[in-house]
Design a protein around this nucleic acid. Structure first.
Lengths: 236, 236, 236, 236
DNA sequence: GATGAATGAGTGTTCATTCAT
DNA sequence: AATGAATGAACACTCATTCAT
């Protein structure tokens, strides 16, 4: 049975507002996007917006929640469909950001990255979903790294490596947007590849020396860490 | 003889406005900082500000110019005084950003990074000094990497490596600010160290194999690239 | 049934703003009237004004539109009630302006005349309603002149005469306001009367010579010219 | 002996300021012309302007005084050189205004007319030179009409006629500027010509009836009225 | 659920003017 | 005579939000 009502958080209007607001916040930033602009773009009157959201901050939180909820569908699933090699997925992910930058004329980088710098201090409530977004993002990368198993050295710090991938992405996006030029981003990605290759080389050497066979599960992820959104698993 | 005049761009008032504006833009961002706030904090009346700056955008450009002019004095010289080892300087630099984050309660990251994301699209004139800031920053790091000479493999792409250091810094700062927590930043820095060490190890291996002696100038920087602000040297 | 809604352009607040703005623009001019002054006088907050009008220019256009819409009711209908003689109506009209000048201490001349000189060049969109106002004004006078029929010579250029009446009014108002003195205006009106009398005398002579009877429709208005606001009828 | 000093009202700087201010007030109006604009256009710093003029109002008075002083040289002398016929001079004068309108794209009408409507009420001190300007202007026309002598009827009110010429000019300029079109102005001028011709025709008839000879001094100007700028001669 | 008029503090900026040098 | 920094009130306008309907 389908719920045809517009009750609660499932309203069509609410969804349209969120969609438009996400787009505008991404393009122009939170502060630079007036509520009136969202209203106009969504074809909605102010009363409607304030029916669904207590205020602009609540709208931001709604946008962030939706953005997080769509992260897998929009970002990680396409990347995982692109390649099965866990390590190649890292670079497919970074390439996705590069393509989005280029196709948007270097305007659309990472919404959450922008917001992290813009509102982290002034809207404390926004820090929670931003945090969680970064955790989830690097958590997904971490899963890939763990899936690479013995291809990486046993002592390679996968959570830290995942955080590095995130940093390279955000730092690369920032430079690319400033220069309107993909190369500084690509340069950092190239170094990251070089680093991962050196890790793979070392893992191979170590495997050869100890006479091990290359197992896909050489270093099994700790099952207590699997909950993506819990705080316990955060290892950094 | 001291110049007692306040002529030209050296006016005391102008300087005070720039200093205050830099601080406020850093703390709150450009858009979120009202001209009135700058005025109040600087103890200046609006007419004075507009005497020195055509408008808020011109003030931003003034702040960026000053920020760039002070980059060496504020950032690179202290780091170079801290250690003579060119590769250690990279980590001293990153540690400086970490210390600044921590001592400011995770509010003060990188002014230019913030502005790159906030105004790069909407204030095109600002992109020029932002560009140049990133070029200069990574250019200084590149000089260190070149000074490391044979400690890094001959085929290591020093400009790309420098861009990576910048990306790690900006991406690390972003995560640290979002989490109010240094660890994700530190994790990325740790991986960078691991990468540089692996490069050093390979350089040692290659030297040993070919019977070379470890020369500090194994790979001399191309003299045609030395001008920091020229465009010819940009290699990415 | 009364319409209790405030929808559309008929809002009470909107009307009050227009009324007050018209008065202030008339007394002080457009540029010299601050939006804040209109706000204060109308007892309205700025947001309300900008809810109804895109900006000060749009307010001006609203005032002009209203002023044009009220032209017949305020000016021509009272004059037509004052006398049935079509030529006397011309002088009753001019006398209305003289009375208004005197009773306002020579401050209230012709709003549209003021605006024509003040904003015609700088606010191009305002020229349209100003144009139309002058067209309508002289068009109404022209209708009177045509109604005078054979009392004026057949070859008398009624549109040109109507434009002359408008010129005498505006030029007379200007001098009267400068001198705070009705006499220069009255002098010009006196000469206009002398001119019209000379035209009537000639018409009588021509009728006598040709043995015609004084018909009220000696020169019938061209029916294709009747639409006041069309452009086809403009003959100048 | 020539005074080479720049003292008093004869300063080169002062003159340049007046020239520029006159031009700007003419093009944009008094209120719409900022002091800063005058300063910039004149290449002068604010201190200099305030050295010569107590404030913006004093600058306006200076402009008006200069404008009045140049009236004969700029307007009446060229017209008088154009034709010797006193009545034709009236139309040459009006044509001068038409030409100026057209060649300036209908922006430059009559500076004093503009100011009469803009500042007559708000800057009382300006009314004096505006008054005098109108008096002088119509006084010069009146002299021509008097010079026409018996070509006009003895009982024709020459001062009133001169005031009418001024009214037709100002009213014509106003309509022409509003319409960006010379024709409404030309129409009024055409009617004025028709009126003067009817007066000339009557004068001829009356001369013929009384057997007089056409004397150039048929109605001598009252010598007590000759002082152009005195108030005694004003007859209206 | 939705409307749109209303609020009033806030925005960046320009204004004419002053005055020490 | 001239400079240019400084003043502060005023400018037109936008903001996020409220609320009776």
């Amino acid at each position: 049975m389908i719920d045809h009502s517009n009750r609660g958080s499932g309203s069509v209007t609410r969804e349209r507002i969120l969609e438009i607001a996400e787009q505008l916040f991404h393009e122009r930033g939170y502060g630079a996007t007036g509520v009136a602009t969202v209203l106009r773009a969504a074809g909605v009157r102010s009363g409607s917006l304030y029916h669904f959201f207590r205020g602009k901050e609540a709208l931001l939180l709604g946008v962030l929640a939706r953005h997080l909820a769509l992260l897998r569908i929009r970002v990680f699933e396409p990347v995982e469909r692109a390649t099965d090699d866990p390590l190649e997925r890292v670079f497919a992910l970074l390439q996705l950001y590069m393509r989005n930058l280029e196709s948007s004329g270097f305007t659309l980088g990472c919404l959450v990255g922008n917001l992290a710098l813009e509102v982290a201090d002034t809207i404390p409530t926004a820090r929670v979903p931003i945090d969680r977004y970064f955790d989830t993002w690097s958590g997904e990368v971490q899963r890939w790294l763990e899936a690479a198993g013995g291809r990486l050295p046993a002592d390679a710090d996968r959570p830290a490596l995942a955080r590095t991938v995130l940093a390279v992405m955000e730092g690369g996006v920032m430079q690319a947007r400033a220069h309107r030029e993909l190369r500084p981003f690509a340069a950092a990605v190239g170094q990251l590849r070089s680093y991962l290759e050196s890790l793979e080389a070392r893992a191979r050497r170590e495997r050869t020396e100890s006479g091990q066979s290359p197992s896909g599960e050489g270093r099994r992820p700790d099952p207590t860490r699997r909950g993506i959104n819990g705080s316990a698993w955060r290892t950094w």
